[in-house]
Measured scan of single mutants.
Amino acid sequence: VSFKITLTSDPRLPYKVLSVPESTPFTAVLKFAAEEFKVPAATSAIITNDGIGINPAQTAGNVFLKHGSELRII
């Protein structure tokens, strides 16, 4: 599955597209996205474009099915 993750704390709204296997734990996606944007993973969260928080204790495939591919990291 592929996710387009936007960094909301930067006024330029940079984004990265990450492709991972469906079975990947979403905690790993969060950690990798945080490292890519050089923000601390421990204090970061991934939310939907509607501002709904995503529980990272599920697979990337589940997140994709529930929330789609466009996400934000805060």
Results as ranks from 00 to 15, higher is better:
residue 61 G to C: 07
residue 46 I to F: 15
residue 67 H to P: 02
residue 3 F to L: 03
residue 65 L to K: 10
residue 11 P to E: 15
residue 63 V to S: 00
residue 37 F to T: 01
residue 70 E to F: 06
residue 2 S to L: 04
residue 23 S to Q: 13
residue 61 G to E: 09
residue 53 G to T: 14
residue 16 K to W: 04
residue 33 A to I: 06
residue 30 L to S: 15
residue 56 P to I: 07
residue 30 L to R: 14
residue 20 V to L: 13
residue 10 D to L: 03
residue 41 A to W: 04
residue 39 V to L: 06
residue 37 F to D: 02
residue 41 A to R: 08
residue 66 K to T: 11
residue 13 L to Q: 12
residue 35 E to H: 13
residue 40 P to Y: 02
residue 52 I to S: 10
residue 19 S to L: 09
residue 36 E to I: 06
residue 45 A to M: 12
residue 52 I to M: 11
residue 64 F to E: 04
residue 49 N to L: 04
residue 6 T to Y: 06
residue 50 D to K: 07
residue 30 L to E: 15
residue 19 S to I: 05
residue 51 G to H: 04
residue 37 F to H: 14
residue 20 V to R: 01
residue 25 P to K: 14
residue 53 G to D: 14
residue 6 T to E: 04
residue 48 T to V: 03
residue 2 S to P: 03
residue 36 E to D: 07
residue 28 A to V: 13
residue 5 I to T: 00
residue 26 F to W: 15
residue 13 L to M: 07
residue 74 I to V: 07
residue 7 L to C: 14
residue 70 E to H: 08
residue 61 G to Y: 09
residue 32 F to G: 14
residue 28 A to H: 15
residue 30 L to F: 14
residue 59 T to F: 05
residue 55 N to T: 05
residue 54 I to H: 00
residue 28 A to Q: 09
residue 72 R to I: 04
residue 3 F to C: 01
residue 25 P to M: 13
residue 11 P to A: 10
residue 56 P to V: 12
residue 19 S to T: 11
residue 2 S to G: 03
residue 37 F to E: 01
residue 28 A to K: 12
residue 32 F to Y: 06
residue 30 L to P: 00
residue 73 I to W: 03
residue 23 S to W: 11
residue 3 F to I: 00
residue 35 E to M: 10
residue 27 T to P: 11
residue 37 F to M: 03
residue 72 R to H: 05
residue 59 T to K: 10
residue 2 S to N: 06
residue 50 D to H: 07
residue 53 G to C: 09
residue 63 V to L: 02
residue 10 D to F: 04
residue 25 P to T: 14
residue 44 S to K: 01
residue 50 D to M: 06
residue 40 P to N: 09
residue 42 A to S: 09
residue 53 G to M: 14
residue 49 N to S: 07
residue 18 L to F: 08
residue 42 A to F: 02
residue 65 L to M: 10
residue 54 I to Q: 00
residue 52 I to K: 14
residue 60 A to T: 03
residue 66 K to W: 04
residue 6 T to Q: 06
residue 54 I to M: 02
residue 42 A to R: 07
residue 16 K to Y: 08
residue 66 K to P: 01
residue 43 T to H: 11
residue 35 E to D: 13
residue 58 Q to V: 03
residue 11 P to S: 04
residue 70 E to R: 07
residue 22 E to D: 04
residue 46 I to L: 13
residue 18 L to T: 10
residue 40 P to D: 14
residue 41 A to D: 04
residue 43 T to N: 08
residue 58 Q to N: 12
residue 69 S to M: 08
residue 45 A to F: 03
residue 73 I to R: 00
residue 69 S to G: 08
residue 49 N to F: 02
residue 63 V to P: 00
residue 60 A to D: 02
residue 14 P to S: 11
residue 54 I to T: 03
residue 48 T to D: 14
residue 58 Q to W: 13
residue 36 E to H: 09
residue 56 P to R: 08
residue 57 A to L: 10
residue 50 D to E: 07
residue 8 T to Y: 10
residue 66 K to A: 10
residue 56 P to F: 08
residue 64 F to R: 07
residue 27 T to N: 05
residue 1 V to I: 13
residue 66 K to G: 07
residue 74 I to D: 15
residue 68 G to D: 02
residue 47 I to H: 15
residue 30 L to H: 15
residue 50 D to P: 02
residue 36 E to S: 12
residue 74 I to R: 15
residue 61 G to F: 10
residue 68 G to M: 01
